[in-house]
Each structure stands twice: as structure tokens, then as C-alpha cells.
Design a protein around this nucleic acid. Sequence first.
DNA 1: CGCACTGGTAAACGGTGTAAGCTTTACGAT
DNA 2: ATCGTAAAGCTTACACCGTTTACCAGTGCG
Lengths: 253, 253
Amino acid sequence: MVQALSRRDRVRAATTQEIIQTARRLLVEQGPEAVSLRAIAREMGMTAPALYRYFSSHEELLRFVVADIFTEVADHVRTAIHAVGSIEAADSADVADLMVLKMAAGCREFRAWALEHVPEFSMIFGSPMPGLEVLHEIQNDPTLDCGYQFGQVFLGLFGELYRRRPFAIPADDEIDPSLREQLAKYRQLVHSDLPLGALQTFLRCWVLLYGTVSLEVSGHLKFALDDASPMFELMLADMAPMVGLDQPLPRHN
Amino acid sequence: MVQALSRRDRVRAATTQEIIQTARRLLVEQGPEAVSLRAIAREMGMTAPALYRYFSSHEELLRFVVADIFTEVADHVRTAIHAVGSIEAADSADVADLMVLKMAAGCREFRAWALEHVPEFSMIFGSPMPGLEVLHEIQNDPTLDCGYQFGQVFLGLFGELYRRRPFAIPADDEIDPSLREQLAKYRQLVHSDLPLGALQTFLRCWVLLYGTVSLEVSGHLKFALDDASPMFELMLADMAPMVGLDQPLPRHN
DNA sequence: CGCACTGGTAAACGGTGTAAGCTTTACGAT
DNA sequence: ATCGTAAAGCTTACACCGTTTACCAGTGCG
């Protein structure tokens, strides 16, 4: 099924990638408004309409940029999780503890990456992309897949934590019926074998993590706090009991 | 000190208001990109440069729009809180319960307003406005005051709840020193007499509420849920113990 | 009356995304 | 090896955008 790439196709892919990277550089160096077709083309020694050979519109180009950012943050979080230690190297009794450490490391890395990459973070998690409703109908939307991959990083970790050291989750019949139905659909979508209650807990954790980081990064906490890191740690403390810990998610030094 | 407005000044204020309302209408009907000076002017039967008689730039106009939206959502929440019942009419024993109902009503109204006014919500709580850092140094920035007023609605309610039925809060020396310092500054800024621990709890509640609503409105929960209302209710259930309740924040019918 | 100010205009500058058409280059199949 | 074709540039053009400038019709006031 998969065709070997011809030389021309490889050149094309390389150029496509270069366009995306140029767009990202402009985003970081000069802000979101600077990411114009003309600016990108200028930066690459081309003219703006030439970019239409690679992307059908400005918006599509941006969606590829978003996808690129998504995979980067996913990689960062994955790496941070992995750096905590490997499961094989640990005593089987310590494995559960290790998973907890990985969880904390993943969350903290997510925040750290966000704070170091504010424009990128705003791009992928900021206000709804123009034409978001339509976006869900697009077939080859790269953001969907990359967003999915990103979610899998956290969900995979969460699932493993649950398997290694099961914590209290609501039984199926304790879950709001409407929510239960949606969770079932979601479980199927992400090919998970976790109980619905675990998925509910997972989503609650994600809301907590996203809300805290997003609020801090967007600057909408500045009215009260200059440095929101203590609030982030408090959030982690809130998250701990959700996954069956008495202690806040510990630091891994 | 306050001068009576001359007739001309009243006309001017009315026109200013009409510009803002036109901008809001365009925002709602045609999305954020449609709020251009030319479009506003066209809509009002004027030309774009005429708007410069009222606002010094496009961005300043937008900041006034944001301020307008802020006061509207604040009014909505305030009204919803008030509609639950007046304190005078209640038995003194029921007053505390009443405050809890008001709290729940305020949070739910905030979400309801956000869902009914997605473009406006994205405008005031979305990704950081271009040049946000500078924004804090502007003197007559209307968004600062209106954002403050908005915060006071929730903080006032929270404070009254705490006074009527004090709940467990961390003592000053249990608070992270860095956070304690910032909370002290914040308390002074908002002229509150609440203990620092209460302010910390308040901010945690706000992070929870904002994060949940923002995630839902921006559509970044769609990957899992079509209807996020059950998650919102779960969030309210999480919030309840923070303010000393065993039961989730009850509904007021 | 004359003067200054207010609130509008049109024109223009440099910027944007995008569409259309033309040219050159280079690959692939015959 | 050649020829057709498609890819990947280019230029030009259009309709927008925010903003500045210069100009002009009123209005209110000394």
C-alpha cells in the first residue's frame, strides 16, 4: 500500500516541512500576526502565491503548524515521562510508585513546555480556530491525528497507573447516564480498555491540568498572581486523591 | 469634580456606545475577523477614518468592546445570584444555605452565558490579546476596571459565604510562602478583608470554574465529549468540599 | 462677524489572503 | 532520447485591512 517516495516527492516533503518550520519561527519571533503567507515566502526567498503549491490556503498551513506543535509537545511530555525511569528497572513493588512519579513529571513538563512556548501553546490550545465546526468534517486534518496522539500520551500513562495500582473510580451505574454514553463512545474512539469510571476520572484530571496551565499561560491569572507555580502545585495536590493518593503528587529529583 | 455633560458630550458618548455595539454585533454575527474598522463604519454609514475621532486605534476600540462584554457577563451573574433570593427574606439559619445556592447559581450562569455567547467569551477570556504586557501599563484601560468588577462579583459572593458559614481554610503559615506574599498583595488590591487562606481557596475555585468553562467553550473537549454539562456538574461537586460542603452544590429550581 | 473646534470626508500607503495566467524546469513513459 | 505533462515557481490583479494625511462643512462662542 505504502509507495516508496520518489525523489521529487521527497523534495516536496522537505519544502513543506521547511515552510512549516519557517511559519513556526515567525510565530515565535514575531507573534501570531506575523505568520502571513507573504512573510513566510519572503523569509524563504519566494513569493506568497507559490505557497499555494503546498497548501490550499493560509488556514490549512496553520493547521499543519498546529499539528507540528502538537507532536512536539507530545514528544516533550513523553520524554519527560520516560526520563523518570523504566518500569523494567524497578522492583515490581515500586512500579506503582514509579507510575505516580511519571504522572507528576508529565504534568509538570506539560506546564513547563507551555510556559516556555507561549505562542505555540496559545496556537494549539487558544481560542477556537476560525471555522472549528467545519474543521471536524475535514478528512485529512492533521491536527485531529496529532491531537489524538497527544491525548494518548497522557491517557496511556493514566491507564498504566490505573492498572498497576487501581484506585477508586465510580461504578458504571454511578455515572451520569448522558456522560456514561459519551464515555463509552470515547473509549471506543481511543481504543481503551479502561472502565468508564476511570475515563471519567481521566477527563476530570485533564480539565484540571488544562485549566490551570491555560489560565496561567494566557495571563488571565495575572490579576492576582505574578507567579502561578504555587497554584499549579496546589492543583497537583487536588489531582492526587483522584488517582488514589493521600499525598500530593511528589516531585522527582 | 464631576462635570455635567454638555449636549455635545452626550451625543458623543452615544455615538461611542453605538460603535461598540456595532462591533459586538459584527463579532457575534460574523466572527472575530469581521470586526474591522471599515466594516463597523460601513455598518454605521460612515467611513473608517471617522472612527478615529472616537478611538485612537483598532485595538483600543476592541478593548472597549471587551470592557462592555465584561460588564455584561458580570451583570448576568449578579442577576442570577440575586434571583436566588434575598438575604433579608430568609431565616438567619437558612442564610448560609442561601449563599450556597447563590454560589451554585452564579457558577452555572457563568457557564450558561459563556455557551450562549461563545464569540464574546473567546474575546475576553481567549488567548492573550496582542501586546498584553503593554496592556498592563496603560492608564485608562477600561478592561482592567471591568475585569476587576467582574472578579468582585464572585469574590463578594465567596466572601459572604465564608462569613456566613466559615469553612476550613489553610492557616497563613500553611500557605506556600511565595503564594502567601502574592495573596497579600492581591488582598490589598481588591480591598478584601478575607484571610489569605480564603483567598487561596477562592483562586482555586476560580481556576476550576474557568478551566472547565473555557475548555468546553473553546471546543477542546469535543475530542471526547459532545455535551460537557455532566463534566461541569462534576466540577461543581469538586468545588463543594473546598467551601466546606459534603454535598455537591445543589441546584436551585 | 470671525475664529476654533468637532466630526466627518476622500485619497493614499503599505500590508494582507487569494485567484488567474504565464513560464520554466524536470520527471516519466514511450 | 524525446516529448508530453505536471510541478513549482513567477507576475499581475483584486478586494480587503489599519492608519495617516489633507481637506471641508458645520457648530458654538467670544
